[in-house]
Design a protein around this nucleic acid. Sequence first.
DNA 1: ATTTACACTAAGTATAAACTCAATGATTTG
DNA 2: CAAATCATTGAGTTTATACTTAGTGTAAAT
Lengths: 193, 193
Amino acid sequence: MKSKRQLQKENTKIKIFKTAYNIYSEYGFTATTAMIAKEAGVSHGTIFVHFSSVNELLTCLIESFGDNLALEIHDLAEKNDSIKKLLETHLNILSKHENFYIHLISEKSLIPEDVQMALVNIQSNFAFHFNRIIEREIQRHAVKSIPIHMIFNTWIGLIHYYLLNKDLFSPDEPLLKRYSSELIKTFLELIKD
Amino acid sequence: MKSKRQLQKENTKIKIFKTAYNIYSEYGFTATTAMIAKEAGVSHGTIFVHFSSVNELLTCLIESFGDNLALEIHDLAEKNDSIKKLLETHLNILSKHENFYIHLISEKSLIPEDVQMALVNIQSNFAFHFNRIIEREIQRHAVKSIPIHMIFNTWIGLIHYYLLNKDLFSPDEPLLKRYSSELIKTFLELIKD
DNA sequence: ATTTACACTAAGTATAAACTCAATGATTTG
DNA sequence: CAAATCATTGAGTTTATACTTAGTGTAAAT
């Protein structure tokens, strides 16, 4: 049984955590701890009761984000065995976290180096499922015989380019909502044998 | 005839300008005006005699960079009319400015908004030549009939993905030196009809 | 009921970086 | 040669932000 104090402490931490996610999603990683405290309705100092530094807060957030994405990718990749389905699923997952993900890739340089690994892990994780399916399609001569990692990098490169240039491509609405089908269609066209 | 004073002033400005380019190329856009002053061998205050703010310095640098790139692209695109030649030329040009260019695209979020346009201009400029040649190849059925802008974005997306992840792909030597031919080969394979 | 523990507060400190400005001394002007 | 000009200096000032800490009031322990 948890004491009243323990509960309050946990709740406050969760409140800060979730608020930070929202603030960073909206304003990017230049948002300040002061903003987060204000939005969470706690005093500035409270943040440092729960997280020893802003870097630790960032680290927790991003690693947790990576873990969540990994779970979603794992779950859905099992069920989708056509390339098209796989790509649709990939973009659907990213779509749910679009704002945070965009800030993550476009402001990577602001993020503590030891956490940037989390980003690499996200890609590796998806690459695993991606490669399994593409490999099979290459065997079947449905996909061009090009080194798999290049096919993967072309796909990630293309969608990251769009996400990184959301201001240009889709300033007023979610980018993936608008471009998912065009991106998938183009990519399938390119890789088909 | 220029007076001694005028000459000295100009030289100092150029010295600061070039040093800033080198410092930013090496350390990225978080490098400080103090670093630049020290490296240029002038006092910190001198920078603000020549540039009203660090943003103005950045603006000058990046716009000048864009102009140079535009010239190089214009010159060389005239002479290269096969796709392969065009892509090789593109990467050769970027190769000459690899470090600065990488910082430019990976730290875009640190750059004043009104200068980010310069980056868009660089792409538009290249897109013009790129599209002209691809269009012709599509007519000849040498390249798949896919919307040209998607072909262009796939190419830029791919090379930016590599440049943005230089740490991963080629931490110890220039990235384009190592990957140019693989990138070109893959891309040509993908778009050929 | 009293004492102790502790989550939280808010005012304060530390630091880093851009930017200012009065002083300096070399150059130009008359 | 004297006076005026001006590029440069470097020791400040300002500002923004992360982080600290002594204090407060409520919950828990005795």
